[in-house]
Amino acid sequence: MTARVLRRIAVTAAAALVAGGLSIVDGSPAAAAATGYVRLAHLSPDTDPVDVYLTSLANAFPRKVFPGVAYGVVSAYQQLPTGTYAVSMRLAGHPESENPVLTTEVTVAGGKAYTVAGVGKNSELGLKVINDDLALPPSGKSKVRIVQASITAPLLDVSVAGGATIATGVPFAATTAYQNVAPGKWTLQLQPTNGGQASTLGAELGSGNVYSLIVLDKAGGGLKVELRVDARRQGGVPAGGVDTGAGGTSRGSALPAILGGLLVLLVGAGLIVMMSRRLRTRRA
């Protein structure tokens, strides 16, 4: 009888404690998405198409192949787990058993992006890892940079048609830093620094977006210019987090739960002591 009563007290106390303290998730900090982005590019005007292999050194995912990449091709970004990857290049169609023409490694950090590009003239071809800064531009701005892969215009000036200069003397095989510019419709003019035919390009830049202006040699002469959206978003940037909860499943602060728990323990212990005393008294 006594044991049953005690057990009932214990069970009730525990139930009260758990019920009173029921709460939702813990706000412990944790790892964000541990991913980055990699894309591949062929920016060597006189190099034949190549097959590009991307291998995770940590075996984070199966090897990827990017077949028949010709001059001027810039692949889509691939979202990848963080870690180090080997990039190797063979002439298109050559078997994997052959030694690659070029190899390099790219280490992907969380939230970062990279373009691994074959750059330079074929005689001095190299694989270059370019850091792409896809971070949110300052409020109300777009970010643009120039990827210069034209050998017919070994030095290039870029300006707004009839307006401000954006960059001067950008050398072949170079990539400029990103520049913050006002969004909107632009006509860009590209002029070889040492003379020659200029090219123009209509460009519409969206606020908050990141662009690469890729300058290539056009087959048959002149420049081929492509404005590439590296990263985009839409709408105003929300300020901070979101207030999505009314507290109905919360314990509030942990303190009341702990105090409540202690109180239940004290009362329970008191009852037990009282009862065992009463039992002893009755026996005596």
Partner: peptide, 13 residues
């Protein structure tokens, strides 16, 4: 300490 740029920043995909 909400990382606005990371959560709402532009992405390629």
């Amino acid at each position: 300490r909400f990382p606005t740029a990371q959560v709402y920043g532009p992405t390629p995909d």
